[in-house]
């Protein structure tokens, strides 16, 4: 029994040790760049509970999530269409390869010119970075659909929409989800980047501004909040994925879908 508890507690040891170590080191060290832990925690409470939530956190999250939704809304249908049409796929391949390889932050100046400094440019940059894993995984998912099943459904004259709903989507969904998870991380990164350039609020703006005015503890609170955000978003996503794909996990236990190698989670 005690062995089991020890086994379960094992993963918690290192994080606690790291935090304790930093706490003990930072108080006497008085390093300007690495302020004491209690000070950071105090500032965190002052700033993020709940003073700047409405002005910085909510707009950032809203932008990120709406851009993420747009990426899914565009990426899945386009990806499926490309997966099913060989002609379209071949024709679009070079363009897709180029746009996918283009580092999305390089498009910020372009977005600023076309959409101005408002929400439009930020959404554009996030979507243009986050759509590719979803699109490419949908494409692969569509190509992986069992042809016999599709042919049979066609010969039984199952309507097109029902074929999409009952055959294509279930077969492609593990891949689509793998792409969506990658995209979530990318969307978060691009949210921060897009707010660091030409912005007046948002988390990215806050962190960079704090650094530029040498408000070091404030900067740390922003970094920590972003870390927590990344962790939480990932955890929530995994829960949803587990719920939606329970049948897949059950059928192919121990064979988690490997994201297509574009999996760029940073």
């Amino acid at each position: 029994m005690t062995r089991r508890i020890g086994y379960l507690l094992l993963p918690a040891i290192l994080p606690i040790a790291v935090l304790l170590g930093y706490g003990i080191w930072s108080i006497p060290a008085q390093n300007f760049y690495f302020p004491p832990l209690p000070e950071i925690i105090g500032f965190f409470r002052d700033i993020w509970l709940f003073d700047r939530i409405g002005s910085d956190l909510v707009p950032s999250l809203a932008r990120m999530l709406s851009a993420y939704a747009i990426s899914i809304g565009l990426g899945v249908p386009i990806g499926l269409a490309l997966g099913f049409s060989r002609l379209l796929r071949t024709a679009c391949e070079p363009v897709v390869e180029f746009l996918r390889a283009l580092p999305a932050p390089a498009l910020i100046p372009f977005a600023l010119l076309i959409f101005g400094a408002g929400n439009g440019s930020k959404l554009f940059v996030i979507v243009l970075g986050a759509i590719w894993p979803i699109l490419l995984n949908s494409l692969d998912g569509a190509r992986g659909v069992d042809r016999t099943q599709l042919d049979m459904a066609r010969s039984y004259q199952v309507p097109r929409l029902a074929r999409l709903r009952h055959i294509v989507l279930p077969a492609a969904s593990p891949r689509i989800f793998a792409g969506m998870r990658t995209s979530l991380a990318i969307a978060l990164i691009l949210m921060v980047v897009s707010e660091m350039v030409a912005s007046s609020h948002g988390l990215g703006y806050f962190v960079l501004q704090a650094q530029r005015s040498f408000a070091i503890p404030e900067m740390w609170t922003g970094i920590i909040l972003l870390g927590i955000l990344g962790f939480l978003l990932n955890a929530i996503f995994l829960r949803i994925e587990n719920r939606v794909l329970f049948w897949h996990r059950a059928v192919t236990r121990k064979r988690p879908t490997k994201a297509r190698s574009e999996a760029t989670d940073a």
């Binding site: 918690a12 949210m191 970094i223 972003l226 940073a266």
Partner: peptide, 28 residues
């Protein structure tokens, strides 16, 4: 054993958006 020990740290640090560290990197 080492994997289980470090798993939580990895799982927490991995999703941290790396760009959040830009200000820190500039300072240091």
């Amino acid at each position: 054993l080492a994997y289980r020990l470090s798993k939580a740290v990895i799982e927490f640090l991995r999703p941290v958006p790396s760009v959040a560290l830009i200000p820190l990197a500039v300072l240091v």
